[in-house]
Each structure stands twice: as C-alpha cells, then as structure tokens.
Nucleic acid binder design. Structure first.
Length: 788
DNA sequence: GCTAGCAGATGTGATCTATG
DNA sequence: CATAGATCACATCTGCTAGC
C-alpha cells in the first residue's frame, strides 16, 4: 500500500457530500471545489470514517433467527388475542408464553392479565370506577409506570417541597437567588430572566424551580441536597415518564439537574446520562431542534396551503397512540431565543457527556445549531451570557469533530497515533483549538469552567498518544489505572511525534489544573460536576504518565522524564485546594473528587500497586542517548512560559509572536523557539491555594441558618480569583493538610461505604486496604512545600 | 492442521437523477 | 437549487478450498 493511501480525506468536500453532488475542484484554486467557490463557503475535506468491524456471519444468522422466532411468536400471540376477544389470552400457559421463557426478551411485550391490567408489583393496586375509566386509555398503551405509592394514579397537583415543609420559602428563595448569582454564571445554559422571582418561578415552572434549588443546595447542605435530588427524580418520573409531558420547562430542568448532578454510590446508578437523553429527545419532540416551518424557504411555505398530510407515526384513530411530537404547551415558540439557547445547551451537554463517558453522541451538529449560534451572537435580545454560550458551542463543535474522528465511542475502532492520518489530523485539530482560543473576546467571555473544558478537549485530542502504553478503555469514566499494555512492536510511531503528543498531554494537564487552582474556593463550590470530572481527568492523565515513566517496558518512558510531570506538586496542590472547597459544610461534589484525588495521588506515588513490574530497572531516568534527547525535549517544553491571570480568564502569555496560546510549538525544535510555561516553582500562584485568609473561613464556616440568611454572596466576576488567597479553618486544626488524619480516613471510609462516588470509580476504593492507607506518607513532595 | 489464495459478502463513499 | 433515493465502484472482510 502506498503512502498516499494513508491520506485521510474524503474525495468530496463536506458540502458536496452533504448535497450528494459531484465535487469538482475549482480550476483557479484546486484546494476548493467549484460549488464552494461559487457559493463563497469554506471548502472542508473531512477525514474518512474508520470501518466498522462487521459481525461474523454465523453470529448474524443466529441473531436474525432469534429475531424471526420472536416475531413469529409475537404475531401468533396477537392473532390468538384477536380470535379470543375479551376472553382472549386465557391461557397463561399457552405455547407462545411457554416459548417466551426460552426466548430473548427484547421483543416481548409485558405480560398482561386477561382483563388487560398489567401484572407485577405495580399492576396490583386497586382503584375505583372513575379512576379505572381514566386509566383505561393508559393501560391500552402499555404497562403501568407509576410506583405503587400512587394509589390514585398520577396527580397533577402534588405538594411541592415548600408545601410539604421540607424547606421554608425563605430557604428556597435563597437557593434560587444563589443559582442566579453563583451557580448559573459557571455554565450559563438555563438563564432566569431578571424580573422573575422565586415565587413566580415556583408557580409557573415548578419542575425548573425544583431543579434549580436542588442544584444550588449541593454547595450549601449535603443532606438537603440529597433530599431535594430525590424530589427532583420523583418530579421527572411523574411528569415526564408517567404523564408523558414534554415541555421547554422540563428540558431546562433536566439540563440543570444534569449539569449540577450529584453522583450516586455506584457508577451503574448514574442517571445523568438518562437526564441528558431525556432532555435531548424531548427537545427534538417539542420541535426546538429544527427550524420552525414558517421560517423555511418559499417552497416549504407553499406546502402550508396544501391539505395536511398525515405523519407516518400518527394514528388518527387513536391520538393517544400517535408517535408524532406533542407537547403540553400547544403552541411553543420554537424559534424564540430561549428555545434556541436551550437547544444549544442540550447540544453542548450531549457532546460533553459523550466525550466523558465515551458513548455515542445523541445530538450531532446541524445547520440549525450553526444558525442558532449566529442568531444568538447577533440578536439584540441576547443576554450577556449568551456570548459565553456561543463560545461554548463553537468549542464543542470542535470537540464533536475530534470525537467522531478518533472514534472514542467505539472501542474496536479507535484511531491510533501510529497512523499518519491521525498525526495529520491531530495537528489540524490543535490549530483549530488554538484559533478558537485566540478568537475569544477579551471581555465578558471565559469562565473557569469553560477554560477547563478547553484544556479537556486538548487533552482528549492528545490522549491518543497514551494509548501506546495504556488501554483506551481505561480513559472511559470511571477511570481505571489498569496496567501497562504496550502496543505490538510493529506498530511504530516516530519518536518526535510521540514526544510532541506526550509533551502536549503534560502541558495541557498542567494548564487545566492551573486553571482550577487559580479559581477561588467559594466559586469552586458551584462548579458543575462536569468540571470536577475534567479536573480529575487531568490528574488521571498525570497518574497514567507516572505509571508509564516507572515501567520498564513502557514506550512512553523512552520519551519521558518523570520530573517533567511535577506530579507530586500538582496532586498536593489540587488536594489542598479541594479540601478547602469541601470546607466544613462538606460540599457534595468536591467531597467525592477529593477522595478520588487521594486515590490518584497514591497511584502516582506507588505505581507498583497497579502493576507489579518485573525485575528490570525502570528506564525513565537511565535511557540511551536518543531517548534522553526526547525526554529532555519534553522537559524543556513543559517548563518554559508564564501563566498570568488576566481579568476574567487565564491567559498564558506567549513569549514570541506565535499565535498559539499553548505552551510550546508542537514541532518543538528548541526551547528558545517555544513559548513555554514557567516551571511551577516560578509561577505566580500565590493566589487561591495558599494558606490562609480568615475571611473565607469566617464567612463560610459560620454555619449560619440558611433559612434566615438574606445576605447573598456578591456575584463573583471574574470567576477566577485574582486576589484573595483562600483557605478553610478546618485544615488549620490539623496543621498539615496533606497528613492523612483520622478525620479524613473516616471521611474516605464513609465514601467507601457507598455514600457517593459513582462517577469516579470510588466504588472500588476498597482495593487499597485501609491499613495501607494509614501507613502512607502523605507529607508534601519535595519542592512543593514552599508553594503551599 | 495450517496457510495462501480466491470468491463472494458487506460496508462505505461518490454521484447520478428524480422531485419539489 | 436543495434534497434524498438509487446505484455504482471500490475496499475490506469472511469463509471456503486446495495444497503443503
């Protein structure tokens, strides 16, 4: 196969492929096609898809046979029911049902009793004549969905958390305002108009109101937060699943709940993926994901005068069984700025979660999404945070392309850095990310959460180099340290390419953690759960590199000097920062990630816990000349430039005229040519992480009654702290925050009991024996002490 | 039993063409 | 001119078979 066969582009450009028309190069400019040249659009040649592994024929035949049997049985059952009428399926032991036990269940309907009432725990409740009549329609449509507690079926007017006395209206108001001022700015997706009060929101959008106060409660009171989360879940179950409601309000509520989600004890219990799916499908069902009909071009407008056509999914005889989109609100303004903002938010979150969980993306970028971005950017009705939302969307569009090119959601088809096309694409994506960063407006745009996302996407891009040593599965939440799994030796990758990518991984992890470390403690308590996942991901990448650096058979170790990781410093600073964030109130989300950071730190300090090395000496610090050059190159790259805090966002100042905000050029010829980050010891990171200002601890540790608190913290602009150092009185009692004191051991043991941690893999924390943890040396790594 | 080589099946991409 | 079904071309994979 010749080298050209490796070039990873389609022959037709994206626009021509979309329109299924011939793509002919323009004679005057062969880089673009005639159609793009004529219409003045950018002509983009996207990379080819990686082929799917196809199923073996025998497997496929077996599957088809199973499916056929199931369909036959279903048909038979239907015919029997039709013949038998009301007396119908009187034979629970009929052939069809007997077969069912040995058949795959995928196609089976739920068992029904002869009278059509569902069986099973939820099917046995009693109801009177009127309810029976009211429920009859629902029963025809399928099994019972509401819990047995609903003796009278679903209720429209149930008491909310204030009516039931769970919280006072004053507390609810406080939480509501706290969302508006502290929580929302981190992730400005679901905005509350300035003139809407808590009481108005509670009356008009109760689900959104509940989601908002539950999101706010996470940083205030973990018990209240857990209780409100249950209420939120109940509200979604009732309104969305039981009552089949679809509305903009529910989409927004689901988004808020997903963004400020509180992970459960086990990874398998995670519901935020479901929340996001529900939000995405609901958004499409209510029509906010496409252009409204009246906005279409003339030829569509012409159709409106024609007789109404029947949607294929519509059942005119029984509207209740129709699959056509419906909403509770009969005339939602699907083109409103709020609808567009919400749909962009759904898109952003869908891509984000598919990235973290390495699962297929529910919502791909569409022309309507692009149109909505332009609309939001230009609309006179846009609110200030819409600019941030626009920047988020543009960033996420790049992430989506990386995701589809790297095929992270398909473990069998993930791209490899050994391929030339991957290497070329990596450079291209890096340029585009850099261009996004450089084009960010200097003012108003850029929060810590967004910068964390930016670095995460870069990390996601370069992570592919780590697959040389580590299974790609390890990088899928919940993260697994696994062991070294080197590529087969014939899968060669040029040393320079590998060194560049690894250097980028290190530098990007550092930048991400620096962004977090520079944020103020109070602000971090309101960060979305996604941000903590990404902070942990950066720490996890450093831990993975530590493992590589220590392993005798690692390919990465040949281009890596462990000291360039500065892993002890970063881990210690991150742990200290998160301990301060957790504070005396034990903010829920940071608590979970604190335990994870301790675990990662342990992995870094004792890589042999994970992988029992052979007796060979580690190569990282005693490698031959060629490798030594590469590792020194990485060290140089990772230790050069300056980070300065610049207003609302972090900028990494560039020493040369180079436009890239990143720490070094990927060619990495010499340190002098690279714009590089300062060594950690030289950084001006006295802010945000050092002990100790009393003010924060006094303010936050006072334990004031939330229900009486009318004074809200001032809105934090910028969100990245540039001035006040922060700390919490909690750690002053023990002296050294890195000492694994009894209180912390107990705290981690509590985590291990299954209180929290599903996103993080903490459910396997037990793999490290407690006595071993007690023996750990948690004192600060050398060189870090003076920074704390 | 193993393997190279072949034929057919299958997945993917390009673009023709009918339609609105 | 945009859209989308239809069709063709080609790459790649699978399963079979002859030859060792």
């Amino acid at each position: 196969m010749d080298a050209n066969a490796e070039i990873p582009a389609h022959r037709a450009c994206a626009a021509c492929r979309g329109q299924k028309v011939r793509c002919i190069p323009d004679e005057s400019n062969p880089d673009i096609c005639q159609r793009c040249a004529r219409s003045g659009r950018t002509c983009v040649f996207t990379p080819l898809m990686k082929r799917k592994q196809r199923k073996r024929t025998d497997t496929r035949v077996a599957e088809l046979e199973r499916e056929m049997r199931a369909m036959r049985a279903a048909l038979q059952q239907k015919n029997e029911a039709a013949r038998g009428g009301a007396a119908g399926s009187k034979s629970p032991g009929s052939e069809a049902q007997q077969k069912r036990t040995s058949e795959p269940v995928g196609l089976w309907y739920r068992d029904t009793k002869p009278d059509g009432v569902a069986t099973g725990p939820a099917g046995n409740w009693e109801f009177g004549g009127e309810e029976r009549s009211a429920m009859a329609r629902v029963q025809r449509a399928g099994p019972q969905l509401w819990p047995s507690g609903f003796k009278n079926g679903p209720l429209q007017d149930v008491k909310d958390v204030v009516d039931s006395g769970m919280i006072s209206m004053a507390t609810a108001r406080h939480l509501f305002e706290s969302y508006r001022s502290d929580v929302f700015p981190h992730y400005p997706m679901v905005a509350i108009p300035n003139d809407i009060t808590a009481e108005q929101m509670r009356a008009t959008k109760p689900a959104l109101f509940l989601a908002i106060i539950a999101a706010s409660a996470g940083k205030e009171n973990s018990e209240l937060s857990a209780a409100l989360d249950k209420e939120v879940l109940q509200a979604y179950a009732t309104r969305s699943l039981v009552q089949s409601e679809k509305s903009l309000e529910l989409v927004q509520a689901l988004l808020v709940s997903a963004v400020w989600y509180h992970p459960p004890s086990k990874f398998g219990q995670l519901k935020y993926y479901e929340y996001i799916h529900m939000a995405a499908t609901m958004a499409m069902d209510i029509g906010i994901g496409t252009r409204p009909t009246q906005h279409r071009s003339g030829r569509f407008a012409k159709r409106e005068s024609r007789p109404r056509t029947i949607h294929p999914a519509e059942d005119v005889n029984n509207p209740d069984l129709s699959m056509t989109p419906r909403s509770r609100d009969s005339s939602p303004d699907t083109a409103s700025i709020e609808a567009r903002r919400t749909f962009l938010a759904v898109y952003i979150i869908c891509v984000g979660v598919s990235m973290s969980l390495r699962r297929p993306n529910t919502l791909r970028c569409s022309s309507y999404i692009r149109e909505s971005v332009d609309y939001l950017e230009r609309s006179p009705n846009a609110i200030p945070t819409d600019r941030t939302l626009v920047a988020w969307t543009r960033l996420i569009m790049i992430a989506e392309e990386i995701s589809s090119s790297w095929c992270y959601d398909d473990p069998g088809g993930i791209a490899s850095i050994t391929e030339l096309r991957t290497q070329l694409m990596m450079k291209d994506f890096e340029k585009r990310l850099t261009a996004w960063y450089t084009n960010l407006p200097e003012t108003d745009v850029g929060t810590g959460a967004m910068m964390i996302m930016y670095h995460t996407i870069r990390l996601y891009l370069f992570e592919i180099a780590l697959h040389i040593d580590h299974s790609s599965e390890d990088f899928k939440a919940p993260y697994q340290m696994g062991g070294i799994q080197p590529y087969p030796i014939e899968e060669e990758v040029p040393t320079q390419v590998l060194a560049d990518a690894i250097a980028n991984c290190i530098q990007t992890s550092h930048s991400l953690l620096n962004t977090f470390l520079a944020m103020d403690v109070e602000g971090c308590r309101s960060l979305p759960v996604f941000s903590y996942v990404r902070i942990s991901f950066a720490a996890f990448v450093l831990a993975k590199l530590c493992l590589s650096a220590a392993h005798p058979r690692s390919r990465i170790a040949k281009v890596l000097d462990r000291s360039s990781l500065k892993v002890e410093t970063y881990m210690d600073r991150a742990i200290l920062h998160v301990r301060n964030i957790v504070g005396v109130k034990r903010s829920r989300v940071p608590s979970i990630f604190l335990a994870l950071l301790f675990k990662l730190r342990q992995w870094c300090l004792n890589p042999d816990i994970i992988d029992h090395f052979e007796d060979e000496p580690a190569q990282s610090n005693q490698i031959e000349d060629g490798h030594d050059m590469s590792s020194r190159m990485i060290q140089d790259k990772v230790s050069g430039g300056i980070i300065e805090l610049d207003g609302a966002r972090i900028t990494e100042q560039i020493s040369s005229s180079e436009s890239s905000p990143q720490a070094f050029n990927t060619q990495g010829q010499t340190a002098a040519n690279s714009s590089t980050l300062a060594p950690i010891d030289e950084m001006t990171f006295v802010q945000g992480v050092t002990p100790v200002s009393q003010s924060d601890s006094v303010q936050y540790g006072s334990g004031s009654d939330e229900s009486t608190s009318g004074a809200l913290p001032a809105q934090r602009q910028p969100m990245i702290n540039t001035s006040a150092p922060s700390n919490d009185a909690q750690w002053q009692a023990t002296g050294d925050p890195m000492v694994m004191d009894n209180e912390l051991l107990q705290f981690i043991a509590q985590m291990n009991e299954g209180v929290e941690g599903g996103l993080t893999g903490l459910d396997d924390w037990a793999s490290i024996p407690l006595e071993q943890m007690e023996q750990m040396n948690w004192s600060m790594g050398h060189g870090a002490t003076n920074l704390m």
